[in-house]
């Protein structure tokens, strides 16, 4: 015979299960995914797959590889759904998985990468030509300058040490502040500020002709 408290708890759980995911924190949605709520997992994938692919693309500079790595990130999230503990923000956990994967991949393929030369005259063979399509609002000279600038940005960001690169990409493109980046990279906040400052200083120095 169910008690009144038990019945009330059951009703509360039923009501909670119908709460829209966007009214919950991502960590709460992830906890639901851990109870085999596939819609919760799907919600998180839908929300984060674009930024994750963009992050991986800038980490490895190859769209096909970026998508493969992003697939692996979300599969790891799925595999860990039952053991996930909401100790930190969901994105901190997500980007820690992503950064580890990208850095490990870069280390495993360092020799392959080091032999490549960035050409300014040919389409980007890794990502396809889509990124360097001429802007119709610019004249020929402006388009050439724009293309050179873009290649320089990619080249110098890619040349940063892995942790600096990951920190800059999370700060600049993923909209994360240094506190969250510190959580992802397992560094102190002051070490993260220092890491970011050094990275931006290097980029400022190497890109000064375009600024």
């Amino acid at each position: 015979m169910p008690t009144v408290t038990g019945r009330m708890q059951g009703i509360a759980e039923m009501a909670a299960s119908h709460v829209p995911y966007d009214s919950l924190t991502d960590a709460e949605v992830m906890l639901r995914a851990g109870t085999d709520d596939n819609a919760a997992y799907e919600y998180l994938v839908t929300k984060y797959h674009r930024p994750m692919i963009a992050f991986m693309y800038r980490m490895c500079h190859n769209q096909a590889l970026a998508e493969d790595l992003a697939q692996e990130v979300f599969l790891r999230v799925y595999r860990s759904r039952e053991t996930y503990a909401a100790n930190a923000k969901f994105t901190t956990w997500l980007y820690r998985i992503a950064t580890n994967l990208a850095v490990n991949h870069a280390r495993d393929h360092k020799v392959e990468r080091s032999g490549k030369v960035v050409s300014l005259d040919e389409p980007d063979e890794e990502s396809g030509a889509t990124m360097d399509v001429a802007d119709p609002t610019l004249n020929v000279e402006q388009n050439i300058l724009r293309r050179e600038r873009l290649q320089a940005i990619k080249k110098h960001v890619m040349a940063l040490p892995e942790k600096q690169r990951a920190a800059v990409l999370m700060h600049k493109y993923q909209g994360m502040d240094y506190r969250e980046i510190a959580g992802v990279l397992k560094l102190s906040e002051s070490a993260t500020k220092s890491l970011l400052f050094r990275a931006y200083e290097v980029l400022r120095d190497r890109l000064k002709e375009f600024v």
């Binding site: 797959h49 998508e67 990502s127 940005i153 493109y173 931006y200 400022r204």
Partner: peptide, 17 residues
């Protein structure tokens, strides 16, 4: 100058999935 460097990085867009 740091802000200008950051703004320059805006030009690097990522492709559509």
């Amino acid at each position: 100058s740091l802000r200008k460097t950051m703004a320059l990085l805006d030009e690097w867009e990522s492709p559509e999935p």
